[in-house]
Design a protein around this nucleic acid. Structure first.
Lengths: 202, 202
DNA sequence: GTCTATAGATCGATAGAC
DNA sequence: GTCTATCGATCTATAGAC
């Protein structure tokens, strides 16, 4: 048999496993952990509830498996151009437009934050596999461009990414677009101005 | 009678109303909307479930009333000193230490984000009453200090606050302190460096 | 292996005693 | 007004047919 044994919970390679995880993803992303029923997961996945329980021990096990899987999907972090003014703007646009190109990503981030109190290890997996690589990548870029005269590459990387994430948080995730409106490019321009403008000694 | 009539849902001034809201706060902040039962709210509040339903129409009404109330509590935004290097550091420390001084605030933000998909108007109330005043206050401060030579005061205010919020998000809310550790003051120093360093024309 | 059917607990909401 | 008791629906999880 080529198929992975269901008793290995982390393998998750069979068709039925895939169906279940697809159903679970759709339901958990839309309704959260407590708001999702195993009946609905089974129906959405196109299998019976008993089948779900033959592949996953319980609701919590299914949820953990799903979120770990989503957190392990490689995120698209763009190649960095040599010229900072070009590279940094491209990174910023890529992050800010992620919500448009991959609308499910916003729901995924919301879910991880929502359950970070009851499932702290899932939030940590998210930080380890998604936030950390992005910060490190940008830190390396800043560190390899001494002409920017940045005293702390990693802190600057967090400021850069933090500004973009907060913008997404307020404008889209929390539906603040019409309450505190701002053009995407205004934020990027100011961010690049702060980082790229030649600075004299104080 | 001095007491507010229970039939006015927004007044919410009686002792029982206060008990119910206290119980609701404890439960909703800990377990989210779907994860909270009205039985537990009643027990934690020290009243019967029927009493809860005599003060609030249903679970959704109680939840909305609670979150609106919490979002209307004035947040402590510090007075801004005249000297930017002092004022901005103080603002940053105040925001970053909020999690220590008022640990429930983190759970409140998490709850609002968690339910921002199913209760978008609550997220908007949060943006309107908490995020917007903070951004406007800092924007005014930047605008009234032209010696900082900031081309866009509001965008800079969002960068400033966004960096701090993202730091709180990764380090505390998502439990990333041990995965991507960083001293609080390193972030503040870099943030102040970017904003305060005299910049020449490019 | 996958299904239907169901057990046992808990949910939101209400009726009726006092 | 506030309580206890309970209804009907829905929940997680499993037993048993095939």
């Amino acid at each position: 048999m080529a198929r992975t044994k269901p008793s290995e919970p982390d393998a998750a390679g069979s068709d039925k496993t895939e169906q279940i995880l697809q159903g679970a993803m759709q339901e958990f992303l839309a309704h959260g952990y407590a708001g999702t029923s195993m009946d609905k997961v089974a129906k959405t996945g196109g299998v019976s509830k008993a089948t779900v329980y033959s592949y996953f021990a319980d609701k919590e096990g299914l949820f953990v498996a799903l979120v770990q899987r989503l957190a392990r999907k490689k995120v698209h972090f763009p190649v960095l151009d040599e010229e900072p003014a070009v590279a940094l703007r491209f990174v910023a646009i890529t992050i800010l437009d992620q919500a448009s190109h991959e609308p499910e990503y916003l729901n995924f981030v919301r879910l991880v934050i929502a359950e970070s109190g009851r499932f702290p290890q899932l939030a940590q997996t998210f930080v380890k596999n998604l936030a950390k690589p992005g910060i490190e990548r940008l830190t390396q870029y800043f560190a390899s461009h001494p002409e920017l005269k940045l005293p702390d590459a990693e802190a600057t990387a967090r400021i850069f990414i933090g500004s973009l994430v907060y913008f997404q948080l307020t404008q889209h995730m929390m539906h603040g677009k019409d309450i505190i409106p701002m053009e995407r490019d205004r934020l990027i321009d100011s961010l690049l101005h702060l980082i790229l403008s030649p600075q004299s000694n104080s």
